[in-house]
Write a protein that binds this DNA or RNA. Sequence first.
DNA 1: AATGAATGAGTTTTCATTCAT
DNA 2: GATGAATGAAAACTCATTCAT
Lengths: 219, 219, 219, 219
Amino acid sequence: MINNDISAASPGVSEPGPPRRRLPAATRVTQILDAALQVFSDKGFASARLDDIAEAAGLSKGGVYTHFASKEEIFGALLKRLIQPPMPAAPEALADEEPVTVDLLVRRVVEPMYQSLGDPSVLQAVRLLLANGTRVPQAFDQWHQTMFEPHIADVARLLQRGVRQGTLRRSAITHAPRLILSPGIHAMLDGVVRGPVAPDAIAEWKRLHVAMLRELLTP
Amino acid sequence: MINNDISAASPGVSEPGPPRRRLPAATRVTQILDAALQVFSDKGFASARLDDIAEAAGLSKGGVYTHFASKEEIFGALLKRLIQPPMPAAPEALADEEPVTVDLLVRRVVEPMYQSLGDPSVLQAVRLLLANGTRVPQAFDQWHQTMFEPHIADVARLLQRGVRQGTLRRSAITHAPRLILSPGIHAMLDGVVRGPVAPDAIAEWKRLHVAMLRELLTP
Amino acid sequence: MINNDISAASPGVSEPGPPRRRLPAATRVTQILDAALQVFSDKGFASARLDDIAEAAGLSKGGVYTHFASKEEIFGALLKRLIQPPMPAAPEALADEEPVTVDLLVRRVVEPMYQSLGDPSVLQAVRLLLANGTRVPQAFDQWHQTMFEPHIADVARLLQRGVRQGTLRRSAITHAPRLILSPGIHAMLDGVVRGPVAPDAIAEWKRLHVAMLRELLTP
Amino acid sequence: MINNDISAASPGVSEPGPPRRRLPAATRVTQILDAALQVFSDKGFASARLDDIAEAAGLSKGGVYTHFASKEEIFGALLKRLIQPPMPAAPEALADEEPVTVDLLVRRVVEPMYQSLGDPSVLQAVRLLLANGTRVPQAFDQWHQTMFEPHIADVARLLQRGVRQGTLRRSAITHAPRLILSPGIHAMLDGVVRGPVAPDAIAEWKRLHVAMLRELLTP
DNA sequence: AATGAATGAGTTTTCATTCAT
DNA sequence: GATGAATGAAAACTCATTCAT
């Protein structure tokens, strides 16, 4: 059966609508990728419609094609932006004599993780990668390599040193550095799955995470 | 592994053929509704194929969806157009002193009806409404309100006045103005059922209709 | 987006349900045609689904095929039943000397019409024929021949006689007997279009119809 | 004339090919959902074609619609099946006097988790949920409630008791029971992201997980 | 006779992509 | 650079009809 309101039946004989502002390409690209992050992360690659992205970016579908040749290309560019540069600030080198304490680990490893958790766009990115990363298999590996491995390698080095220095106790964690991230990853998944985590919930996760590390690693 | 082979992801990976002329939306909408009237009234709502409508409108099936969200919506818009504006030209007001004679009634009420009967597209519209109107619940009521009630209200006023002026005799018709339309409606139904009425058949219906009114209303 | 209630998601793993009573074929056929009248008249031939008819008839879709070979065949059988026997009770012959008065015309012609209008299934049948009759072109003619022509022929004869006898006045109606039906047809269309007419509305239509005939035909 | 050529009216005027085996609805529904799990988790909701599901389930596309009204409905039913009943076997009650040791926790909590990790269909389900869960709004919450909360509530009770009994040490974990799952969840995510985890990798994750718990909870 | 699962051809609908303006 | 009408191929969905049970 049809829409009840006959008077609402005729289609939008849309007046052209003021052509939107012509912007520098770089700006548009950024807007489009921002929009794409939203839409891809919400619906996944296949369900995302160019119209959705265009609307979220504030231009028309055709306008998007001025900047990208295809949906795939948008996705690719987005992945590149997510994976590559800004996110994982290279950890600054450590002074040779500085002792590796739990506090140091917390500052260098734990705090940044929970920092990220507070940023919705990080959760969005993670969701995007979890849900669509397999579309570009290398993306995953690369993500892993860029996001985690350096981190973990760094952690591993720190743990070794702490143990050698006697400032850290030997523990399951010193044998498997990745474990140091587990509660944070747990919290992240929680955020991805159940929506952004409230700031005080984040603080609580972190507090417990730190407490646990202290128990495990304090000599 | 998840697969999600990129090459299998999105539809439409083909070069479109030569697009037909691009028209302003309002024009296309009109064309589509014109086509829809033909097709719907020829085959009925359910048997009408979007392809037919598209072809009759001179664009592709997909192109129709640029202007209407569904077949139902086309139908609704068509009914709206049929029912609403252009048909019932508001009867021009009557000079205060002009006497309401049978001749006046004939000119204002009877002739326009038989005029319509000669127009195939009117019969088409009526047929469409009769055959498919139940699909849009209020269509009938609205049709009635737009097509008949103003007419009848006008007639009622005229009859009152004529009786008051003594230029019309009191009659069953002056008590139930709708009766003044009955032979015309009879003729219309005949046209709907048995195909367009030949011009001289129409003339004959009208002649008799007028004769009958004269018998009933001449003082 | 999906149905909100996950718990309601699984499809009806319908237990076979008690096989419905096995009935004599003739009974079933009647039930099916009754159901078909409802459904065809409501939705039109093309939009009517076998499932609808089956459900309205109280058996399964497959069951319908036990009695009819196709949807078309159901429609055909229904038309036959509508057109053929029961409806137009042959008007009993008139005693040679009986004078043809307006009262006689009312009893023989007008009253039966308004009788029918009170019967919803008659309106249904009319709607069915109006909406779908063109599907079987002969149906229309046949309907016309069966339903109206004998009637009108009868009326024509009566009118002639009345005029000859001096019991009826010469009038537009005596020249075009079909006009005698016009207000009734008008009322019928009203019923078809706007739903069954209330009993007192019918009475009112009839009263006015009779009054009009009296004005026209009383010598 | 109205046309409505009978021969152009209804679809499907063809002799169907040999129907495949006819099965009880419940069986088919299971098969279809099994197929859907494969296809959806392989391609994601939007890229999964009904044809794929039908083929994988061993019937025709139309056949699928005998059991489900839409692709969405299949997806909903699948999620329901994944989320709801069979997975979380209710933990058997604990004898009143039995002491809650780390070993007990390992048997009741840790081992089952890693058991699941070895099961590809569990990873498949998790991946499906992560990638497409937003499509069914409550899916995530419900998943959480069904999968984790009972587990965690159970763990919380056990930890309380162990602490009271003196068989477990107070620790960050005894304050936040969910932490007991963290390394397992980390491993699961790893499996989801990088493909099924090799059995000995699982064993290694578990070994370390247990070691960590021992460090934290042994009095 | 009746049921309801299954088929398959037809039809509607979607949407990435193109291109005249 | 931007718009939005138009295309066309793919995918979802419908339903008369068949037939094993």
